[in-house]
Design a binder for these strands. Structure first.
Lengths: 339, 339
DNA sequence: TTTATTTTCGGGAACGTTTTCGGGAAATGA
DNA sequence: TCATTTCCCGAAAACGTTCCCGAAAATAAA
């Protein structure tokens, strides 16, 4: 049951360990016949290179740390999957840690990963910005880090982000074009960058169509379905229901819709809905939920790409990639053919 | 920017590297004062132990491989999170790989993980059993493996499973007690162990209440919402709609429900629904979906526990843990107070 | 004080690779 | 034939730890 090592092969073939090593790594400095011989006997002896030894000499862990707010969130599941796929194909392993939307946990995760000597980090920050300066210091010391999503546009580091402003503008404009006269925005957390940006886009659209402040509201909610429900309960009690909601994400939208439906409101007839960061569930509820779809896979892959670039070429420049999405209009937001 | 090593500390304090190592690991064989001295100067020098070197000498990777069908599936997200939490707390890192419900991919994943010398494996198998013999061979050679879910009860290996038979019996019985007279089961894959077991429980309940074969059907569907919709479309075309569906999981149930609702059926008035392996979404749809909740966190944790046991005590006996759940009755399956 | 025992510590091998260096054999050129 | 270059290959150091072994120091027992 003992593991076959490079030495065993060397002994068996009466060659040096260097040659065996070369057979596996270099294409030069070794005769083709000996190389083939070594490779074939290695195979038949069942040799598996010991990654720990390799990592020690090369002084790299071949591990990438990935820190996300919540894996159970469909969006971040996709991020995990995409990076998994991209990075394992290139010889890396991905260590995923989740912060539970908690800054302290996030910092702990990052430190754990750094202590484990990951070769690079991809961070999808949670709400709050307490840790950013710490990350930035690491980054400026040459530590390969790429930020993904939820990060300020002008952060001087490599990052991959979504064009929230534009697409929340489009989403809002869509509601306006459906002749919605009073639109509320359920807006996530006030100190979350994506929330801020989506608010900006929302306001931009309202401004274009000259909505007076009587005809819109921005309500801080959080990011969970539960929170969407709570806010909606409040509004129902106050009898303060507009004819459209634009929500920071699908979960909040679904929670809010559920509460409204249970109270006898008709969607979209009475109230139109549009979400953001489309989830799989959007198509399963009645009515189907309109939403902004993000190119999650592409974005995650891009983050991996930038990171590997940095790892292999330590003086590569900081890179920012901004992505666009698409507006998927479904029943929840379409009023026009009802008139 | 160079890393501080054990040697740097040794040189600075004029002690041997062995002493430094001892200071970090052993509690004995070193005087308390020297130990404290070493630890404090190590700290102030910013020493971080190199995990690669440690792993090489100890001949363990401190990595655990986790193979799941699909991370985006809420159930497996929870498994990932739970094991993450349990294992990182104990000094291990988790390498997650997903098989995309594909046996070949799964085998590839397992082999990748073994080549990376993970110290143990937790496998939640995908549908099909082509690979089981391979895993079993590894297992019998002493490789620490724990199977989680979707695995045959009588597999001679360590495993953590859910009592599918009993709980699908309860779910079915609940429908019967709601006076449903004709019940169809949307049953996942025919060669998936959980499907088989849930079918067993379904039949057991029908038998107890003396349903003749005219009054039930078992339909193979798959595990996705899309597939639930397709099957339902078929049934609608054939005008073959019973007054209740028991579904292999929530996603299939949601897909099926959606299709029915879109075709004017009322739930639960016309057709009652109950799912399985409760998801977060169950509460967000209208009507809320009844389902069987599994103790996912506990089960995953148990799997981790058994695995670590095996790793630390290689002649520990195979262990099987069977878990029970709870039946969460919601509107989708409650007919009685409607009469 | 001497001997026996325990405690503490250093030297050095070991883990399984990669990599540098240098040397011998083969090939090339004159 | 000899010098030069190219091609292969082996020896050995290195990566940063752990751990075994034996010696020195401290303590206890005689």
């Amino acid at each position: 049951m003992k593991h076959i090592t490079i030495k065993d092969i060397a002994k068996k073939l009466n060659v040096s360990t260097s040659s065996v090593s070369r057979a596996f790594n270099n294409k030069y400095d070794i005769k083709k016949e000996t190389r083939d011989l070594i490779l074939s006997t290695a195979k038949e002896m069942g040799y598996i290179p010991n990654p720990m030894a390799k990592k020690l000499t090369q002084n790299c862990s071949l591990n990438i740390g990935l820190v996300v707010p919540e894996i159970i969130n469909g969006y971040y599941s996709e991020v995990v999957i995409a990076l998994q796929k991209y990075l394992t194909k290139r010889g890396y392993q991905v260590l995923v840690m989740q912060s539970d939307e908690n800054e302290d946990q996030e910092l702990k995760n990052v430190k754990t990963l750094i202590n484990n000597m990951v070769d690079g980090l991809i961070i999808a920050p949670t709400v709050g910005n307490k840790n950013i300066s710490y990350y930035l210091e690491k980054y400026n010391n040459g530590y390969p880090i790429v930020f993904l999503n939820r990060i300020n546009d002008n952060l001087p580091a490599s990052k991959v982000i979504f064009n929230n402003i534009n697409w929340s503008f489009f989403a809002t404009e869509h509601l306006i074009l459906q002749k919605c006269k009073k639109i509320y925005h359920l807006a996530g957390y006030k100190d979350l960058s994506v929330s801020k940006e989506r608010i900006q886009g929302f306001k931009k659209a309202l401004k274009k169509y000259k909505f007076s402040s009587k005809y819109y509201k921005i309500i801080e909610t959080g990011l969970l379905a539960k929170e969407g429900m709570q806010v909606m309960e409040d509004l129902i009690l106050k009898n303060d229901i507009p004819d459209a909601f634009f929500c920071v994400n699908d979960m909040v939208a679904l929670g809010a819709m559920k509460k409204l439906k249970d109270n006898g409101y008709k969607i979209p007839e009475d109230v139109a809905f549009i979400g953001f960061t489309e989830t799989r569930i959007a198509k399963l509820v009645t009515p189907q939920l309109s939403s902004v779809k993000q190119p999650t896979f592409k974005m995650a892959k891009k983050a991996g790409e930038i990171l590997l670039n940095k790892i292999n070429n330590s003086n590569s420049k900081p890179e920012t990639a901004i992505f666009n999405g698409e507006l998927n209009i479904r029943k929840s937001s379409v009023k026009e053919f009802l008139n």
